[in-house]
Design a protein around this nucleic acid. Structure first.
Length: 462
RNA sequence: UCCCCUGUAGCUCAGUCGGUAGAGCAGUUGGCUGUUAACCAAUUGGUCGUAGGUUCGAGUCCUACCGGGGGAGCCA
């Protein structure tokens, strides 16, 4: 018999139909003469209640073995439930156990486990409500992101994972090598990469932006969505050594349209999530972080406030609120400042633009005041910065000067500079970390719990 | 990398003033004709993270190391 997904059973009116379901037993409750199984197949957070009563004709499954965690094939008839917690239930006619899960050894109990413990059994944690929901939300969010860009004619560009440019400047890089580590060839004191696989030093990418710009300066509207690697020794609930990043890049686009697209982007994917992941979002809202749904709904409804960095500093200087870190023009805004502006001052998302050039990257377009650059950060309540972007410097001379001013070598950026030498155009883009986005929409506290197998400093267990 | 907290049963935790350990849940056994975190009863289960030290005596105090968590910095 064809396998029916539990999601489809829950969504439709299938009462009276015969069907076969396959899944894992989440829990069993016994009374004299009747047993109840909660069955989950991952297609939805909802469990299907299976009733084993006098009409059950048996099969290969003694009830004792129908333990939490075992996998089963169950055939029977869908009936309306006598219980109050569910509308439909499956009256079992036959049950076959595919794989047992000995109760004394199975690490997942039907009680609630701490996330710290579940991280130690990352191969089994997708069988829990929380991690099943995270996986479905990740998948739906990925799809929503691709759909947003696809609908607007953006080209999905696969920027490289391995990069030879040592100049991306966004963080510490992992080296990629086939050199024998026990006897690394050296030329003087320096490592000699000439005999290495690529004949030069190679690393894992820390950003696809510079490569993305090359394709934007040919295909106009592009985006990247791929893995990114940072070898930073940061041990926090917001950092991973391997994470996924989304980086759109648009030619013939100034900072204003960049902001328009970013605002539209966030509203689109949040709307998609609320429309398509209702059950999972209800779970996050009630069990993980009360208010996440309302927060997303408010963002979708709002019109993002747009202010300059200079104005933000004025706001922060005028307030009575106490901050741990000083507020002064020229210093970067701390997380506490960003949250004060978006939560207390405006109560909605805020886009801050035109930061001092000293605290932003070399490639951002210099304003006429020669002090600020066309950067834009989008801040949202409960998180702070969610998106960072800018209009890129399109003038060859000014870009070259910025590189020199920061003590970098223009020769390292020859192909990036070529984009300004030949057919240069105003262009803009932004980036956001996918896992931080998932953290934000689910309310999950630790970034290690929104990616299937987190890679962190001193952690590579699966 | 720095600061703070933490490590006790399979899981989540309690353990007072230093006197060799306890609860809930899970498991096991039994009971209960429709349960919903099912319920009721009984019961198994411990090198108290590791190594030193102080002490007549250490889960408890001290030191180091290891693991976990929170915060900072860096950043997405």
């Amino acid at each position: 018999m064809k396998r029916t997904r539990i999601r489809d059973i829950m969504a439709g009116d299938a009462i009276g139909q015969e069907c076969t379901v396959q899944g894992w037993v989440r829990t069993r409750r016994d009374s004299k003469g009747v047993s109840f199984l909660e069955l989950n197949d991952g297609s939805t957070i909802k469990n299907l209640q299976v009733v084993i009563d006098e009409e059950y004709h048996g099969g290969a499954a003694p009830e004792q073995q129908l333990a939490n965690g075992c996998s089963v094939v169950i055939s029977g008839r869908l009936v309306s439930s006598q219980g109050k917690e569910q509308a439909v239930e499956l009256k079992a006619r036959s049950i076959e156990i595919l794989g047992e899960a000995p109760a004394e050894e199975y690490p997942l109990q039907k009680k609630r486990h701490s996330f710290e413990y579940l991280r130690e059994i990352a191969h089994l944690r997708p069988r829990t409500n929380t991690f099943g929901s995270v996986a479905r939300v990740r998948s739906e969010m990925s799809f929503a992101i691709h759909r947003f860009f696809h609908e607007r004619g953006f080209i999905y560009v696969h920027t490289p994972i391995i990069t030879g440019s040592d100049c991306e400047g966004a963080g510490d890089m992992f080296t990629v090598t086939t050199l024998p580590l026990e006897n690394v060839p050296k030329n003087g004191g320096e490592i000699d990469y000439s005999g290495d696989f690529f004949g030069k030093k190679a690393s894992l990418t820390v950003s696809g932006q510079l490569e993305g710009e090359t394709y934007a300066c040919a295909l106009t509207d592009i985006y990247t969505f791929g893995p990114t690697f940072r070898a930073e020794n940061s041990n926090t609930s917001r950092h991973l050594a391997e994470f996924w990043m989304i980086e759109p890049e648009m030619a013939f686009c100034d900072i204003t349209r960049n902001m328009d697209v970013a605002e539209e982007f966030l509203k689109y994917i949040f709307t998609y999530l609320l429309d398509h992941c209702g059950d999972d979002m209800d779970f996050f809202d009630s069990r993980i972080n009360r208010g996440v749904k309302e927060n997303l709904a408010n963002i979708v409804q709002s019109s993002f406030e747009r202010i300059t960095y200079t104005h933000a500093v004025e706001l922060l200087s005028k307030t009575q609120a106490k901050f741990e870190y000083p507020v002064q023009w020229g210093l970067d805004l701390q997380s506490e400042h960003e949250r004060y502006i978006t939560e207390t001052v405006y109560g909605k998302p805020v886009i801050i633009t035109d930061y001092p050039k000293e605290i932003k990257a070399f490639y951002m377009k210099l304003n006429d005041d020669d002090r600020t650059v066309r950067a834009m950060d989008i801040l949202v309540p409960r998180l702070g910065e969610i998106i960072g972007g800018s209009e890129r410097e399109s003038d060859l001379g000014r870009l070259k000067q910025r590189i020199i001013d920061l003590g970098l070598n223009p020769d390292d950026y020859w192909w990036y500079l070529d984009l300004r030498r030949f057919g240069s155009v105003p262009h803009s883009g932004f980036g956001l970390g996918f896992e931080r986005l998932i953290q934000f929409v689910t309310g999950m506290q630790n970034i290690r719990d929104v990616i299937p197998f987190p890679r962190c400093v001193k952690t590579l267990d699966f």
